[in-house]
Amino acid sequence: MSTWPDTRILDLLGIEVPIIQAPMAVGTTTAMVIAANKAGALGSMPAAALSIEQLRDALTTIRQASTRPINVNFFCHQPPEADDERDRKWKALLEPYYRELGADFDAPTPVSNRAPFNDAACQVVEEFRPEVVSFHFGLPEKALLDRVKATGAKVLSSATTVEEAIWLEQHGCDAIIAMGIEAGGHRGLFLSDDLNTQIGLMALLPQIVDAVSVPVIAAGGIGDARGIVAAFALGASAVQIGTAYLFTPEANVTPSHHHALRHAQASQTALTNLFTGRPARGIVNRVMRELGAINPAAPAFPKSGGALMPLKAKDEAGFSNLWSGQALRLGKDIGTYDLTRELVEHTLAKLK
């Protein structure tokens, strides 16, 4: 008999422990996914920043190393309309930094792109048949979602409000990730873009649990066993953990990101739209301080990052996205497998 108070996610996804290693486009590696799987958790591979060829290679590597269930995560945003004038004004706002750092302002602006889930990505799902497919920013169109479900995959997506959770259940989600405002990386919001009404996990989680019939996964600000126990007390069937895994040696983070994670205070993260055009939580750096973390001039997702690329090349710490959740000070330098097993052991001890 399981010692976990709620086994619905274990039964639904075929995993041993109710922990999901978050699919972080910045930081996740195949080694991290494999190690999380071996520890009994659900390893998650992010696809948003990968080409189809890179995704296929990553899934081949994971499948060769592990037969356990895996999660593949996709963005399902709507690509923005072309807005050359907004792009021009955004780059003009950054011109003083180009001059200061010696970057070529007159060179063509690099392209910052994130492809939404499409037919090519769906073909990869049909080829590799991951046990879980998760989405960010809602769900893809019904025809694509039906194809995903036809493979036998269980479908997850993130909700940042109760209304989003209800919508996700009505449109076919098998489980819902309740994403509190504390979470690092991109907010999963899709029914509203009002950040002022976004909710912390302690308030959001029980309301989503009460509003839907499918299992709920808690995400945001969970970095140790205390957070996992609290999530179960509020009705979660599992937790999704991201920032803690960025401290592991399997994480692929830049030197500046590595340093910031270990030295920033919990009060030094903020939601920002500067790096991609959508709000995401990261550690405050120079460009966020000087332009404001949320700036209306930033082009729509995912275009704003292109003009920052030449600046990032000159000053990585000051102009790159340093994604992190609010629980970063709970992080410790420990491997993915050992971190997962420690979370399990400490949580079960507290649940006795």
Rank of each mutant, 00 (worst) to 15 (best):
M32N: 02
M24Q: 08
L42P: 04
R114V: 14
W323Y: 13
V124S: 10
A103K: 05
K142Q: 15
P206G: 00
L308F: 07
A280R: 02
L101W: 01
T276P: 14
K350W: 10
W4R: 07
Q240F: 06
L168Y: 00
S304V: 13
P302C: 04
W323N: 03
I176E: 04
L94I: 10
F319M: 05
R99T: 15
W4N: 05
A230F: 00
M288K: 12
V33P: 03
V148Y: 12
P69K: 09
A65S: 15
V212W: 02
G220V: 11
L311Y: 10
L55A: 09
A107M: 15
E100T: 06
L12S: 09
T30L: 09
D338A: 13
F275Q: 07
A225E: 10
N321I: 00
P46C: 07
L348Y: 03
S2F: 14
L145E: 15
H257L: 08
V155T: 12
D106C: 06
M24D: 14
K352D: 15
G14W: 14
A165L: 01
T151V: 06
D194Y: 05
P108G: 05
G40N: 06
I15M: 01
I20V: 11
T197G: 00
G14I: 14
G14S: 12
L271I: 11
L348I: 08
E250H: 08
C173Q: 04
P279M: 09
G14V: 14
V111I: 15
W167A: 13
T3R: 09
C122V: 10
L101K: 01
V132A: 09
G172V: 02
Q123E: 10
A31G: 06
S192L: 02
L308D: 10
D11C: 05
L168D: 02
A300E: 11
V33H: 07
S320W: 12
T160A: 06
S2A: 12
A260K: 15
T243H: 00
N113V: 11
T336E: 04
A236N: 02
P23D: 07
L59I: 13
M202A: 14
E81C: 01
H136L: 15
T248D: 06
M45N: 12
D11G: 08
S267K: 00
H257A: 06
